[in-house]
Design a protein around this nucleic acid. Structure first.
Lengths: 108, 108
DNA sequence: CTCCACTACTCGGTGATACCGTGTAGTGGT
DNA sequence: ACCACTACACGGTATCACCGAGTAGTGGAG
């Protein structure tokens, strides 16, 4: 699959929110999960910029913990504002994707 | 529905391609179609920038015709490269949207 | 006849986002 | 001693949708 970056704009952050929401986790692991999910070209730098943004926007709670196999990890969990943002994301996604699918099916 | 602009990045251009592909049409009418389709906040300036980009990237054939009710219209039709680009867009859309839906359903 | 509404396109500048490359650091294997 | 893997940070870039203001053409209300 060729370049998906433009299409992921505005959705990748929501995907990261969803991953964090289902389990407290950290940047390196989130990158691996996204890769396995099919977003093969998403790279660490991208995920970290999203995580720093989430932190700056106070949507997550951060806990630093030692790792044992490398440098300490920054674990992220959603707070109330984060859960609200995640819900809004899925609402928007539902809205947009249904309308694009309708356009695709020639429903006009 | 609140602001969808970030989520439309990378997809709005594809939507415009689809609309042009199904019928030779012009910017002002495309804007109206998008609005009726549910993308209520998409505004003329945005559509015109997309159309100029499509023209610059040689994905469309342009024909100017008088209108009778206003200034002349620039009608757009897909050429071969445009049809190819449209097909690629739908392939990407299928790929990305299916994976995001899977993430949403907790399929991980 | 003048003003306004609607139609129709252009263009320079802005903000948000994902990406790229590089750097820093900790652990463990060869 | 070197390399691989893990783990995070950060400055700069490209792309995209949006904003705002401007330019024009037609027709209707006052």
């Amino acid at each position: 699959m060729d370049d998906l970056t433009e299409m992921l704009k505005g959705t990748l952050e929501g995907c990261v929110l969803e991953i964090i929401g289902s389990e407290e986790t950290y940047g390196y692991a989130i990158t691996r999960q996204l890769n396995e999910l099919g977003f093969a070209d998403v790279v660490e730098g991208t995920v970290y910029t999203i995580l720093l943004r989430l932190e700056r926007n106070k949507l997550v709670q951060v806990t630093k913990r030692p790792s044992g196999v490398g440098p300490p990890r920054k674990f992220y969990a959603l707070n109330d504002a984060g859960r609200e943002e995640l819900a809004k994301f899925w609402t928007k996604w539902q809205y947009v994707s249904s309308r694009i699918d309708r356009l695709k099916e020639g429903g006009r």
